[in-house]
Amino acid sequence: MVLKYKATRITSLGSLKPGDHIRVCRMVYNHHMMVIKVINNGLLLRVIHYTESEYRQASVGAATSAALPSSFSLSNGTDIAKVKEENIFVDPQEDRVELLEYDDPEVAIHRGQNAIRRARSRIGENKFDFVLTNCESLINWAITGREETGQGQVAIVAGAAAAAAAAAAVGVVGLVAVATIGIPGLVLSGLTFAVGVGYNMKKKKDDDENNKKN
């Protein structure tokens, strides 16, 4: 059975408890985290999550790194994203923050400090994989023992379609250049597919032009 959530919007960080599974919802992605504690009177959260590594921040720049959350990074076990415990600023008045509870509460076999210990056991891990091992699957594993994620499969289909459209509009060279400086995760997730589609489209166009000349 696939894990399903009941999502409750959080308007005050003070209502969160250690071991809670939360996500911050953006326009094109959701970022999942485990709450360790609320600090600074609810202005900061200490969390464990799969996030951009120092290597990625140094290689592409802080602004670009922020635009490419771990949920939509492309990695194959490289040091692009890693599991970290850190303090982060979250404003529930500006960001949509949701507490996630499971439709079947019996699947949450690890709770509170036990779930936190499990998540901490993977700190430093850099085996991020967009489809199978991402920020969502990490927290699900810590709480349920099941490393499941649904957002990778959904987004990779949407991303492929978005990236194919981008490839048609700007061409393969342009798309690769945009990807280098950072674009929304949906397009990145379909980059490989789009490059193939864009290449074939460009080749067909060139062949048609050559045929007309001949």
Rank of each mutant, 00 (worst) to 15 (best):
G42D: 06
F130W: 10
K205H: 13
D104I: 06
Y50T: 07
V195Q: 06
E125M: 11
K37V: 08
V35Y: 07
L16T: 05
T144Q: 08
R96A: 14
E136T: 00
Y5L: 08
M33W: 04
S137W: 01
A167H: 02
L175R: 04
A194M: 03
G42F: 07
V187S: 03
M1W: 07
S75V: 01
Q153K: 00
S12C: 14
T78L: 11
T64I: 08
R118T: 02
G174D: 01
D20L: 05
F130G: 10
V195N: 03
A7Y: 11
T180Y: 14
I88F: 09
G19I: 13
A119I: 00
A142E: 01
A7G: 07
V24F: 08
Y55H: 12
A161G: 02
G171S: 01
R146W: 03
L100C: 10
I109P: 05
F193W: 09
N140K: 00
G145Q: 06
L43N: 14
N214T: 14
G196H: 07
A108L: 09
I123P: 03
R46G: 10
L43E: 15
S53D: 05
W141M: 00
F128A: 04
G190P: 02
G124I: 07
A63Q: 12
L74G: 01
E209S: 12
E148D: 00
I123A: 07
G150M: 03
A63T: 13
R26A: 13
R23E: 12
N87M: 11
F128M: 10
V170I: 10
Y199F: 15
K202Q: 15
P92V: 09
A164W: 05
A115S: 02
Q57L: 13
S12M: 12
N214E: 15
L13A: 01
A161D: 06
N126I: 03
R146Q: 07
D79M: 11
K127L: 14
G190R: 00
T144V: 08
K82V: 10
R9N: 10
K203F: 12
M34T: 01
G174L: 02
I48Y: 06
N134C: 04
Y50E: 11
N134Q: 02
E52V: 15
P184E: 03
E54W: 12
L3R: 01
A108T: 06
N134H: 02
T133S: 11
F72W: 11
